[in-house]
Amino acid sequence: MKKRWIYTFVTAVLTVVLLAGCGSSNVVKIGHQPTSEQTIMAQMLKQVIEGNSDIKVDLVGGLGATPVVLKAMENNDIQISAIRYVGTDLTSSLGLKEFSKDPQEAFDLVKKGVAEKFDQEWFPSYGFDNTYVFTVRKEIADKYQLKKISDLAKVARELHLGTDASWLERPNDGYEAFKQEYGFDFGKKTPMDIGLVYKAVANGEVDIVLAYSTDSRLKEFNLVTLEDDKHFFPPYGASAVVRNDTLKQYPQLTELINKLSNKIDTPTMTALNYQADVEKHDPEEIARTFLQEQGLIQK
């Protein structure tokens, strides 16, 4: 008697677990990572699609890392990635060690690669770039008169750099390539989580931050961006990526997503991020206001 109860229980638990894995398939799912930028763009896609067609869209937020997004696209758990960055995909999903620093050539390369390898469509850029920028604390910039990266050459030995660990190992635009191009090294480098780098800089633990170009926290933490005078960091664009079978199923999607092409330049994206991160507006609201101003959805 007792045993049967246990069996029933185990079966019930397993059923619940397995059922939870199944979802309905007549909606399009957009996957995104937890940053404000990704959340805002996912919202824009959803609102543009739902506002101009009868396709139903679900958002799958908070995905852990680029590999999770790639795997979910492959599995057809999601059909659209809200944002993919040219530079990231060339190294990660396509596994290239070297590629052109010309934005257009790199774009063509990633578009072709993703189409061939994964049968997915790489859309035209939204219009903003997300690349690395060197930023320094205000007082350091003032003290050493720093305006561009070359200015660092004399003082870099005395400065402490905080960076995400990936950059140190990136093949194309990473640390080794940087040393060769600019010909200097930093006194101390600490690889760490990018979110914690900002806390560290606010606390005076590090002097230079290798940040992302559209990050609103540059403004929040009063960091001065140094000009990349040797054009070392390639300005790769950000785009939506969609599975080709989804585009076949909903042919109107291509036109709908293209409505967002080249609509948001880098300063605009930074401003939208600032509204979310610093002014604490809801990404859904930010997306709606922007789309209404642009006349992309009805008021």
């Binding site: 890392a65 190294t91 905080g162 995400d164 660990a165 990936s166 093949p171 690889p191 760490m192």
Partner: peptide
């Protein structure tokens, strides 16, 4: 430890994930 600059094997794990270097 690697996310706060303390080093350790997390460096290989997180960087390996970040730059898609499976060997790392």
């Amino acid at each position: 430890a690697a996310v706060i600059g303390g080093g350790g094997l997390g460096y290989l794990v997180f960087t390996g994930l970040g730059v898609a270097n499976d060997n790392m």
